[in-house]
């Protein structure tokens, strides 16, 4: 590969308090690519995203972003450097208006940038303009998901980590979120996405990484992972290990 990876993990081990959840993960993300993380419940997908953003505990290994190991930086510092993370579930300020939520999204930016950046995400997601004064908690699930993505997009990140962006959304809304992710990546943003809708996610991704029991199990172009019989088997039921052993 000629271009420097957008993110490079080397033997990363991380978890919560005294318990490592993910072990020895090595991974390189190509700039502007979309990578989907696949794996069963408890495989450590969310833990991996949190470790990259720094909201859980690092044990060992490297997280190299733009040539610098960032494992000791606070999340706010990582955000300032261009890494953004949208956690799973509803992650906004429910009793504040959409406007206030977006202004808080601008928290790490200089004041003069707030207006233009918010205008830009509003043109990307016009729905938010119509809900400008509504409390975030009164938006539909899909609208809240879009709002949360917009709240980090105002920082114009170069690496976007999304945890289950389509969870609980209608199929139509899911398609819109996938389209938005593809649109964002087309502007050069690298995306690492955890998805429960594996088929839908693989269709829009370049690369897929399969995790199992806290370790990386498989990695490859999305198309070939999609056609892998073990993956097809696993997502029709049962976990991957059992499938291989059988």
């Amino acid at each position: 590969m000629s271009a420097r990876p957008a993110l490079e993990l080397t033997a990363l081990t991380a978890g919560y308090r005294d318990v490592p959840i993910i072990h020895d993960i090595s991974l390189a993300l190509a700039p502007g690519s979309i990578t989907t993380l696949i794996g069963g419940n408890g495989a450590g997908k969310s833990t991996l995203l949190r470790a990259i953003y720094g909201t859980n505990r690092w044990f060992s290994g490297q997280i190299v972003y733009r040539g610098e190991d960032i494992h000791a930086l606070e999340p706010s510092e990582r955000l300032r450097r261009g890494i953004a993370f949208v956690p799973q579930g509803r992650c906004n300020f429910p009793s504040m208006s959409v406007a206030e939520n977006l202004k808080l999204g601008c928290y790490t930016l200089a004041a003069r940038l707030h207006r233009p950046r918010i205008d830009r995400v509003l043109s990307l997601f016009p729905m938010l303009r119509t809900k400008w004064s509504s409390a975030a908690g009164n938006l539909s699930g899909g609208e809240q998901q879009v709002l949360e993505i917009a709240m980090v997009l105002v920082t114009e990140p170069s690496l976007l980590l999304l945890d289950e962006p389509s969870l609980g959304l209608s199929p139509k809304m899911q398609a819109e979120v996938f389209a938005a992710v593809r649109d964002i990546a087309a502007h050069g943003v690298t995306a690492l996405v955890v998805e429960q809708n594996v088929h839908g996610a693989l269709l829009v991704s370049d690369t897929a990484v399969v995790m199992e029991l806290g370790r990386k199990f498989m990695e490859g172009p999305a198309a070939s992972v999609r056609d892998d019989p073990r993956i097809r088997e696993a997502y029709l039921g049962g976990n991957i290990k059992e499938t291989i052993e059988a």
Binding site: T55, S76, R80, F93, M96, L104
Partner: peptide, 19 residues
């Protein structure tokens, strides 16, 4: 706003870069 934000949702506060 940051004070209200941390009170309402700590995870979202980390997401937008609050300490």
């Amino acid at each position: 706003r940051a004070m209200r934000a941390v009170a309402q949702n700590r995870e979202a506060a980390l997401m937008v870069g609050l300490k």
